[in-house]
Amino acid sequence: MSGFRLSLKHAPAVRVDLRGVLPAALAGLSVAQVGQLPVGHGRSLVPLAEFFTVDPDGDDGTLRFVGDLSRCDRVGWQMAGGRVIVDGPAGHYTGGCMSGGELRVNGAVGLLAGCEMAGGQLTVDGDAGDFAASTLPGSMDGMRGGTLIVTGHAGQRFGDRMRRGTALVFGDAGDFLASRMVAGTIGIGGRAGAHVGYGMRRGSVVFATTAPQIAPTFVPAVADALVFWQLLARDLARHGGPFAALPSRAITRHLGDLASDGRGELILAT
């Protein structure tokens, strides 16, 4: 299966919606056909070739974007398989609702990265904006599967309403980390902002280096959870970075948010 390389010609005047430009949709198409794929540009649909130079690239089916795509939204939107690489920053909704495959952005991403993703792996080698790993506005469930890795910093509301999957930030996270979290695992390599775990019901938030400010609606755990910790820490350690040494660390836990269901936990491996 042939791959494609889409190089951005120039910064678009208004935001471009790249939904539908996925490895599965491009499979079997010629370079000319790929260039004719309609993409949203403001209120109109415009051929992809208006913005991108299309070249064949390898034979493993990888779709590669090159350039500053920070004005291009929904890269990898609803992606179910295959491999997409962005060499440069990407816009909002990157990897949103993806259910499989691998999406890698070698740069920063905008708002709502990995929102409601259900499977696959999204790697952001840079910073992520607000509401990453969270929910679309008005929806009840956020990220519900798969793995999201942000090697830089993340904005506010990281993991809002998240209910399954693993989301890791190697750097800092903004305010309201894991707010309204239902379940799943979040790992933070750096510092976290205010109101960590606001209204979280279940789920685990691991702090690998720096303890956050803990809200009074959390209680310190008196019981050990060594078995669970080893299972989780070993899984997180394979992602490296600040998480590599977790299995050898002792932990303290805080349980809450008691203003909500109260079965979540903040795990301090600091």
Binding site: R202, F228, L231, L232
Partner: peptide, 24 residues
């Protein structure tokens, strides 16, 4: 009702609170 499910690397585990901590 105090039990918690945890999916780690695609495998689901159950954490059941017991008197010496938790049974996984």
């Amino acid at each position: 009702g105090w039990q918690i499910s945890k999916v780690i690397d695609g495998v689901r585990y159950w954490r059941v609170p017991v008197m010496d901590g938790e049974f996984v």
